[in-house]
Design a protein around this nucleic acid. Structure first.
Length: 406
DNA sequence: GGTCGAGTTTATTAATAACG
DNA sequence: CGTTATTAATAAACTCGACC
């Protein structure tokens, strides 16, 4: 079976479930309202929410109700926090499908050096930390009786965590116990996750569910990932939950062999495409300012291939080297990424600042500006901002400015 | 009671090294 | 060769302790 480039683009957008989770429908639930307010402009079709409050932090949009957001997610919306694509708020139904990942931590090389060092320097440290959480309840690492901070320039050991060294053995140990599923994140104090015993955070009914083995868990994640992508290469499916490509390929083969997924060759792709039965190439009616963390944008090569759109996080680029700006939000109109805006909320001045605005080549500038103006007005109103100011930076500024005035 | 500043979190990028 | 691990650089907003 073959798919045209147009079909692939529509499938990719439809699979993301914009119609299910557009901000305009955010009043479907309190969580969604909060997420919309802090800048999670789209809730993932499979309910894997990359930490919305980091969107808030980075976006400089909206307030920063970190703790209330976590409480909502964990207590009211039936979600938990774990390593999905990244640190993610994940629908509770996926808990059993992630336990293989928890079970696997003990032998992960990332922890090896840390565990070896702790074993010699402080035998029984894992049990010590666990016991302290058990006794004292909800704790951030700095609230540990001994957070075991280490000097910053101490480079005699390398990264010991999933991302990198935290500079404190207490923190690393909490993260390790969390990765193993023995502890769970139950809330936050500012940026700091607060940990508690898993059985005090994850509902007993969920913990009692039979644990899926690695193959079954992976198969479920692959199912969900493929559904959220519509059609994707094995590499893209793997990236969705950050699984290994080898495991992903094995699970994809199994799902194809039982007929749950089908293989296809989309126009211009060099790798085989895996198509989910729910994929739909129906026409797309979407106008959405996307967070740069949006799951539609996770895989850069995919975005380039499908949309011809080069997305990168200039948050992490030194200021002098930025092309578009610090926090740039791509604009999805119909089934194409047609522009981008660099936004900042000026809360004191009650004004949404558009510090740069850009239209992709070959787009109808005035049409894009009109739709974008509507989205920005809506965004400003969620954020309780009265005005929108468009600076002159970018090839789209004057068109956008006149569209907003209208 | 108010101000200051240190501490804390996150993900992406690209280059490099190492693995099987 | 394709994949996987390691590393440093990057910015934001909030908390909390120290200090006056």
């Amino acid at each position: 079976m073959d798919l045209s480039a147009d079909e692939v683009r529509r499938i990719a957008v439809n699979a993301q479930g914009f119609d299910r989770a557009r901000p305009a429908q955010a009043n479907r639930g309190h969580l969604r309202r909060v997420l919309a307010r802090v800048g999670a402009f789209q809730i993932d079709a499979v309910n894997v929410l990359v930490r919305a409050h980091y969107l808030a932090a980075f976006s400089r949009l909206g307030p920063y109700p970190v703790d209330s957001l976590d409480r909502l997610a964990f207590r009211e919306a039936g979600a938990f926090e774990y390593w999905g694509h990244a640190a993610s708020i994940i629908d509770m139904s996926l808990y059993p499908a992630l336990r293989w990942r928890m079970a696997r931590q003990e032998t992960r090389p990332q922890w090896g050096r840390f565990l070896n060092r702790v074993q010699t320097e402080r035998p029984g440290y894992a049990e010590e930390v666990y016991a302290e959480v058990a006794e004292r309840g909800l704790l951030t690492f700095s609230q540990l009786l001994d957070p075991a901070r280490r000097p910053k320039d101490n480079s005699c050991y390398a990264a010991a965590t999933i991302l990198w060294d935290r500079g404190s053995d207490g923190k690393t140990m909490l993260e390790y116990l969390y990765a193993q599923g023995k502890l769970a994140i139950a809330g936050r104090s500012g940026f700091n996750p607060a940990y508690d015993l898993a059985e005090r955070v994850i509902p007993a009914t969920v913990l009692a569910q039979p644990e899926l083995n690695a193959a079954d868990g992976q198969r479920e994640l692959v199912r969900r990932a493929t559904a959220a992508l519509g059609v994707a290469t094995a590499k893209e499916v793997a990236d969705y939950f950050r699984m290994s490509v080898a495991d992903t390929k094995a699970r994809l083969r199994e799902l194809v062999s039982v007929g749950e997924l089908s293989e296809c060759s989309p126009e211009g792709w060099t790798s085989v495409g895996y198509l989910h039965p729910s994929a739909s190439a129906k026409p797309v009616q979407v106008a959405a300012v996307l967070s740069p963390f949006d799951s539609l944008l996770w895989e850069r090569a995919r975005v380039q291939q499908i949309f011809g759109f080069r997305h990168s996080f200039e948050i992490y680029v030194p200021e002098a080297k930025r092309v578009y700006g610090y926090f740039v939000l791509p604009f999805l109109l119909g089934d194409r990424l047609q522009g981008r805006v660099d936004l900042k909320a000026d809360r004191k001045g009650r004004c949404l600042l558009v510090r740069g605005s850009f239209a992709e080549p070959g787009t109808d500038s005035s049409q894009v500006a009109l739709a974008l103006a509507g989205e920005l007005r809506s965004l400003a109103s969620w954020l309780d901002l009265d005005d929108i100011t468009v600076s002159s930076r970018g090839n789209h500024a004057s068109a956008l400015r006149s569209a907003i005035r209208r």
